Amino acid sequence: MGVRRHGFVIEEKLQGQLRACGHFLHYNMGQKVGQARILSVLLERGTITQRELQDILEVRSGSLSEILNKVEDDGFIERSQSENDRRQMEVKLTEAGTEAASRLEEERVDMTSGLFSCLSSEEKKTLAELLDKLLDGWEGPERERGCRGRGHGRRMHGREAGQPL
């Protein structure tokens, strides 16, 4: 067991706070988050290949297939063989899927704006900058260990696309 430095250090407090934030977001941002992300991407991008969807979501093919089966069973997506490349499967929203995706997007926007309502615009900007710095610091050790990582959700939140926060 490691030696504890001078009692409860700030790093331990930060780790606990981040864990609590993660727990809150996981349990309060709606159920079936994986399915909601798929619907959101398809609403934004239209018809795409299953491989493109896998790359965007940064998930394993087996995990994606399992979720896609459920979403397809719910009648929200259709899969078909690509006419351009018969080895690829294309995924697109059904009419019911488009309606569900639009509804989920409205709910997500409402929820997200409420999450940060206790912060001023300047505090939100500072928090975003600090979280970017923290995530950048975490990515270095991931690369060194050979971990593929998941990009910390950056693709889904505009960072890689260069969109403003």
Rank of each mutant, 00 (worst) to 15 (best):
E44N: 09
L119P: 04
G137V: 01
S113K: 13
A100E: 12
T98D: 05
S65K: 05
Q31T: 13
L131E: 07
K92E: 13
G153M: 09
E44A: 08
D73M: 06
E83F: 15
L53Q: 02
G75M: 08
C118A: 13
M111Q: 12
K133P: 00
I77K: 03
L53G: 02
E12R: 14
K125H: 08
Q163A: 15
Q35A: 06
L68I: 07
L119Q: 09
G16P: 03
V41S: 14
G162R: 03
H6A: 09
V59H: 01
A36F: 00
M29Y: 01
V41M: 07
G114N: 08
A20I: 02
S113Y: 05
S80H: 06
Q31L: 12
F76N: 00
E123F: 01
E52Y: 11
M156V: 02
G22A: 05
F8S: 07
H157G: 00
R86W: 04
R51E: 11
E122R: 09
C118F: 15
E105D: 10
A20Y: 11
E99M: 08
R19T: 11
E160D: 15
R60H: 12
L119C: 12
G151H: 07
T49N: 03
T112E: 04
H26C: 06
H152V: 11
Q17K: 06
G146Q: 12
I67Q: 09
A36R: 08
E123C: 14
S63C: 04
Q54P: 02
F116P: 12
C21D: 00
N84T: 08
Q15L: 13
F116D: 10
E107W: 00
V91T: 03
E58M: 09
G62L: 05
L64T: 08
L42C: 07
E99P: 03
L134G: 09
G97V: 10
F8H: 11
A100W: 01
R143Q: 13
R37Q: 07
Q50H: 02
R87T: 01
Q54D: 04
E105S: 11
E99I: 10
M156S: 08
R51P: 02
D74M: 10
G34L: 00
F8R: 11
R108T: 02
D136L: 13
D136N: 12
V91Q: 01
V9A: 06
L131P: 04
T47F: 01
L14F: 07
G22D: 10
D73G: 10
M111C: 06
G158M: 10
S63I: 06
R145V: 04
I77A: 03
S121G: 12
L39H: 04
I67P: 06
E52G: 00
R51M: 06
E105C: 02
H23L: 03
E66I: 02
I56A: 03
A128L: 06
E160N: 15
E129K: 14
L42W: 05
L64E: 04
M156P: 00
Q88R: 10
A20S: 11
G7K: 09
L119M: 15
I77H: 03
Y27P: 00
R60C: 05
E90D: 03
T47K: 11
T98F: 03
F24C: 12
C118I: 13
M1S: 15
L127C: 03
H157S: 00
